[in-house]
């Protein structure tokens, strides 16, 4: 039976309209509602299901970030994770926290906790980097099954169905391994009241990044964050003939 480590990131809720800071250094996060990265919810769900199927013995949720990341961890606990580790990264260091740092932290914790499987979301909806799973696998020198839409137990390890450009790819991997969750892997559950209550009592450990020996100096410099170009206003044409004429005029047909 495997011990599963799941990465959960606190991001701006996807129903919130994101706004760029006036100085273009990033996006406004103060006073903005955050929640668990949706792909990480899928990762947690998968781990919890493995535990329910007795394929996993323990599910540990990890989040790197400021104090509020503990709320995200509580959500993971309420969904069914057994315990949580909060790797505290705050202030300026958090502003420049990058996938390489998170991958190093996850790799170190995987060893410390003797994890057999790491599941993370395929990307976080804020930075859209899609790097953490791959980097973690490389650092640990473990096999990886990224963009997973199905994970099954097989004799020697896991059979992972991956969503790739041309369709689906099925791979077999031994354990330990790293998996990244794609959208269709499962439909994450809602945390129910009794579990929300129980989650309050589950263990949550706090560690500092430097205690894990991870250097957080930034490797990438963000030069400018810009709004996407504003969509041009459309116009309504009275009939098909006018539409065709306009399209011709504009050189589209």
């Amino acid at each position: 039976m495997a011990r599963v480590l799941v990465g959960v990131k606190r991001v701006i809720d996807y129903a919130v309209k994101v706004r760029v800071k006036p100085d273009k250094s990033g996006v406004v996060t103060d006073g903005v509602k955050h929640s668990m990265n949706p792909f990480d919810e899928i990762a947690v769900e998968e781990a919890v299901r493995m535990k329910e199927k007795k394929l996993a013995s323990e599910v540990i949720a990890v989040s790197c970030g400021p104090a509020q990341s503990q709320e995200t961890l509580r959500t993971a606990l309420a969904m069914g994770a057994d315990r949580a580790i909060h790797v505290e990264v705050a202030g300026a260091e958090y502003d420049t926290l990058q996938p390489i740092h998170v991958a190093k932290i996850l790799a170190k914790l995987s060893k410390d906790e003797k994890a057999d499987l790491v599941i993370v979301g395929k990307q976080a909806i804020d930075d859209d980097s899609n790097q953490t799973a791959q980097m973690t696998a490389a650092l640990l020198d473990w096999p990886q099954g990224t963009f997973a839409s199905k994970v099954e137990k097989s004799d020697s390890g896991l059979t992972v169905t991956r969503e790739i450009d041309g369709g689906l790819e099925v791979i077999k991997t031994k354990l330990p391994a790293v998996i990244s969750a794609d959208l269709r892997l499962n439909e994450p559950r809602y945390a129910t009241l009794p579990n929300i209550m129980k989650a309050k009592k589950k263990p949550l450990k706090k560690v500092a990044a430097k205690d894990l020996g991870v250097d957080l100096s930034p490797r990438i410099k963000v030069i400018s964050v810009e709004d996407p170009p504003v969509r041009q206003a459309g116009s309504i044409v009275p009939d098909v003939d006018t539409l065709v004429a306009k399209l011709k005029e504009g050189g589209h047909i």
């Binding site: 129903a15 919130v16 929640s35 809602y190 009241l193």
Partner: peptide, 11 residues
């Protein structure tokens, strides 16, 4: 039974 949330998407 039930669920409670203050996450906008879930609400």
């Amino acid at each position: 039974d039930g669920t409670v949330t203050s996450e906008p998407a879930k609400m």
